[in-house]
Design a protein around this nucleic acid. Structure first.
Lengths: 220, 220
DNA sequence: ATAGATAACTTATCATAGTTAAGTTAACGG
DNA sequence: CCGTTAACTTAACTATGATAAGTTATCTAT
């Protein structure tokens, strides 16, 4: 129409501007997924919100699954960032472990749907079940390996802790597994059963970390 | 045809024999769900295996969801039974906690799909997400409350442990929550990521229980 | 400027899903 | 033997993810 119409929200994209449409789709999908859950959100609803036809989405994503995957990688980047911050900032080994665990937990609480998707394999097609725990031998740039990457960072923290003099009760990788399992149990409990009358959340968090430390690190 | 034909597998059921058809459906659904997962199993496939038409299933179940629910309650009865055995057999409080946890874990490993369904809310419709953790204030005979019942039994064990002299670091219900979270973390890790190169399983189990005991019970 | 080439779409359609409506068959009771 | 009704079937509906095939508009090269 007028001299305006930046093609921002309106009509067809100019040539070479397809990627902005892709991001519009991702944004709409994210909002809808977070609000209603993966299963309840149909391709058509996403398309409606974006303002294009349903098949148009297939120009940018091979299927619905890949939309969610793209969203997850995007969100989990945040977790990796905060782990990076801790690695740079915190030097004390015990403190590092605790801060790592807390970062993980807080992330889970702030992004419960993405957490469920990656670490619980919930409400997603059978084929996606393996996503969260694909091994790091895979191409790390591929979508969906974030879970394994996060775990690997924890192993590294424990190996370094051991190197800097901390005495562990088990091999570092075993400790990392136990630590992850415990924190994952905590996190997933809050996420999966939010209406359960849990004890005070901070008490549980403190209690869990106390358990982990007593269980994994030798006295001294 | 012949004088035989007990209507066991063949043809139409006699009057008043509908409940046997119901069980045939349940059995077929169980086999298919365990083999292929909830989502991949269609009403029609279940019906085919039973040898009836798809809508016939709706004579016995209001929807697909209720079939899975019925199966779950059936299977989780086994867990409740083994918990009952422990309560009768084992008297030492520490031993009881450990045995409870182990029974829970072994159950999860032996019935991973039911575990996922009840405790992870995985691969089932949105509406079923709350099933595993409906509160015991609900009608306990209703399908799907087994999760809460199991947890309640753990609380009782810890309360009794305290009564018999064991010193806990936190209130009994808080301890039960921490204990459940840790064991659930262990269980769900094995179930959700079976191909992960975990350390020796028994080592992890021992390590987890050591963690729990050190974390919850005061020295002495 | 204009004629391909092709990015960015749309409409029509498919197969399959869960589920329902409405009719059919056969077993039992009077 | 006849009517009631439990135990079914066939046909169909709606909604899903996905595809095929065509259309429109923008850029590029002449």
């Amino acid at each position: 129409m007028s001299a305006f119409s930046t093609a921002a929200t309106t009509g067809r994209k100019k040539r070479g501007e397809g990627h902005t449409r892709r991001e519009e789709i991702l944004q709409a999908a994210k909002e809808l997924f977070l609000e209603h859950g993966y299963d309840s959100v149909t391709i058509r609803k996403i398309a409606d919100r974006v303002g294009v036809s349903a098949p148009a989405l297939y120009l940018y994503f091979p299927d619905k699954e890949q939309m969610m995957l793209a969203l997850c990688d995007q969100t989990f980047g945040l977790l990796l960032d905060s782990l990076g911050d801790i690695e740079k900032t915190v030097t004390d080994p015990r403190e590092r472990i605790r801060r790592f665990g807390e970062a993980y937990l807080r992330f889970g609480l702030q992004h419960p749907d993405e957490y469920r998707l990656i670490f619980l394999g919930s409400n997603i097609p059978e084929s996606m079940r393996k996503i969260g725990h694909r091994m790091p031998t895979d191409d790390l740039s591929r979508p969906g390996v974030v879970g394994a990457v996060v775990f690997q960072r924890l192993v590294t923290v424990l190996v370094e802790a051991e190197a800097s003099g901390l005495k562990l009760n088990y091999p570092a990788d075993t400790c990392a597994e136990l630590c992850w399992m415990a924190i994952h149990g905590l996190t997933s409990a809050f996420i999966l059963k939010p209406e359960f009358p849990w004890s005070d959340r901070e008490l549980l968090i403190d209690g869990m970390f106390a358990m982990i430390m007593k269980g994994l690190v030798k006295e001294g």
